[in-house]
Simulated scan of single mutants.
Amino acid sequence: MPSSHDLPGPCHLCGGRTGARLGSAWICGTCGWRYGDVPDSDLPLPQIEVVYYLRYDRRVKIGTSRRPRQRLASIRHDELLAFERGGRPVEQHRHREYAAQREGGEWFTLDDELRAHIARLRSIGDPWELYARWLSEALRA
């Protein structure tokens, strides 16, 4: 099992600074991208659909986006709670699942049930680190 060390510089994909040596290559510990490889700037990055959970006061917005950085920048919120991989079908499933907590539109009361779901998602990893990993996987595919 490789041990974690500082990369020679920040990862070109996610900016991560720690990684592991695999043979002669460094692999970013955050996203799994091979250190030194640079995504082709002439090609668009793959679009990763995510369901996001944003907290604003005691409410949570459950929405979806293919460009989460842009989308989240346009929504007033206190905290990004989690990402879940998936698009509109996953979002609609969550809206039905938490229909009893719906306050209006895509906003839901942050109760114990919704808090437990978000905690399960958070146990998988930090939202932005997960997104970087999903992006790296898509680029390698």
Rank of each mutant, 00 (worst) to 15 (best):
C11Q: 01
L43R: 15
V90E: 10
W107L: 08
Q70Y: 12
L22R: 15
S41P: 14
D42T: 15
E49F: 03
S123V: 05
W128I: 03
I62W: 01
R58H: 11
A73F: 07
A82W: 00
C14P: 06
S24Y: 11
R58S: 14
L81I: 08
D40A: 03
L139T: 03
R34P: 03
P89N: 13
A141M: 08
Y131F: 15
D111P: 02
D40Q: 09
R122S: 13
R34N: 06
L114H: 06
R102Q: 14
G15Y: 09
H5D: 09
D126W: 02
M1K: 02
Q70H: 07
E97G: 06
S123W: 04
R115F: 07
H93W: 10
L22T: 10
R115C: 14
I62R: 00
F83Y: 07
Y53N: 03
D78T: 12
Y35F: 14
R96K: 15
I118P: 01
Y53R: 02
G86K: 05
R88I: 11
V60P: 00
R102G: 06
C28D: 06
R115M: 10
Y35A: 01
G105M: 10
Y53E: 01
G9I: 00
Q101M: 11
S123Y: 06
R76W: 07
D40L: 10
G105Y: 08
I27M: 08
Y56M: 12
R140C: 04
E106L: 09
R34Y: 10
Y56P: 00
R102C: 13
I118E: 01
A82R: 00
P39G: 04
V51C: 09
I118D: 02
A99S: 14
Q101T: 10
C11M: 02
R120V: 11
Y52D: 00
A141F: 02
H95A: 13
H95V: 13
L114S: 05
L80F: 10
E84H: 12
D126C: 10
H12Q: 09
K61Q: 06
L135H: 02
L22H: 15
G87Y: 05
W26H: 01
Q101F: 05
L139Q: 09
G32C: 08
V38G: 04
S74H: 15
L81V: 07
L7K: 00
V51R: 01
E84C: 13
R55G: 04
A20H: 12
P46Y: 06
E113V: 14
Y98A: 14
P8Y: 09
P127I: 02
G16L: 00
G104K: 15
P10E: 08
A82E: 01
L130Q: 12
P44G: 06
E137Q: 13
D6Y: 09
C28E: 03
T109D: 12
G105K: 09
E49A: 14
T64F: 07
P8D: 10
V50G: 03
R17L: 11
P2E: 02
A20Q: 13
F83P: 00
R140L: 04
G9D: 14
V50H: 00
G63S: 05
S3W: 03
G105P: 03
Q101P: 00
E49W: 01
P44T: 08
F83A: 13
C14A: 10
G32E: 07
R69P: 01
P39K: 12
H77A: 13
A116M: 08
D126L: 08
R133D: 07
T109Y: 12
D6V: 04
R133N: 06
D57P: 02
